[in-house]
Simulated scan of single mutants.
Amino acid sequence: MSTDVHFVVPSGIDDPARPSGGNVYDRRLAAELARLGRLVLLHRVGAADRGALARLLAGLPRGATVLVDGLIGSVAGDELAAESERLRLAVLLHMPLGQAEPDTAAGEARALGAARVTIAASRWTRQWVLAHYGLERSRVAVALPGTDPGPLAVGGPSGRELLCVAAVTPGKGHATLVAALAAIADLDWRCTCVGALDLDPEHVRRLRVALEEAGLGDRVDLLGPLVGDRLERVRTQADLVVSASRHEAFGMALAEGVARGLPVVATDVGGTPEALGCGSATASPGLLVPPDDPAALAAGLRRWLTDSNLRGRLRSAAARRRDTLATWQDTAQQVAAALDAASR
Results as ranks from 00 to 15, higher is better:
247 H>D: 12
252 M>F: 03
273 P>G: 11
273 P>T: 09
252 M>Y: 00
248 E>V: 04
259 A>R: 07
270 G>F: 00
297 L>M: 12
239 D>E: 13
323 D>P: 01
251 G>R: 08
264 V>W: 06
320 R>E: 14
227 V>G: 15
290 P>H: 05
292 D>Y: 01
306 T>P: 02
298 A>C: 08
235 R>P: 05
294 P>I: 14
311 R>P: 06
221 D>L: 15
231 L>Q: 14
274 E>S: 06
267 T>P: 01
240 L>G: 12
314 L>K: 15
207 L>E: 03
261 G>K: 06
210 A>P: 06
217 G>L: 02
277 G>K: 10
228 G>T: 13
319 A>L: 02
238 A>N: 03
249 A>P: 04
268 D>E: 08
222 L>S: 11
233 R>L: 12
277 G>R: 12
230 R>Q: 14
271 G>I: 15
221 D>W: 09
279 G>W: 08
259 A>S: 15
309 N>E: 13
216 L>P: 06
233 R>S: 11
313 R>E: 10
293 D>A: 10
268 D>S: 01
234 V>E: 04
273 P>S: 09
202 E>P: 00
269 V>K: 00
287 L>P: 07
198 D>S: 07
197 L>P: 02
294 P>W: 14
309 N>F: 12
249 A>Q: 01
282 T>S: 11
303 R>K: 10
269 V>L: 13
258 V>H: 00
232 E>F: 06
234 V>Q: 15
220 V>K: 13
292 D>N: 09
315 R>W: 06
297 L>D: 04
325 L>E: 02
272 T>C: 04
303 R>L: 14
256 E>D: 14
207 L>G: 04
245 S>A: 10
325 L>P: 01
199 L>Y: 01
202 E>Y: 01
317 A>R: 13
324 T>A: 14
200 D>I: 08
311 R>F: 12
213 E>M: 04
271 G>K: 09
228 G>S: 02
252 M>G: 06
205 R>K: 00
200 D>N: 12
287 L>R: 12
269 V>G: 02
260 R>F: 11
290 P>L: 04
241 V>P: 02
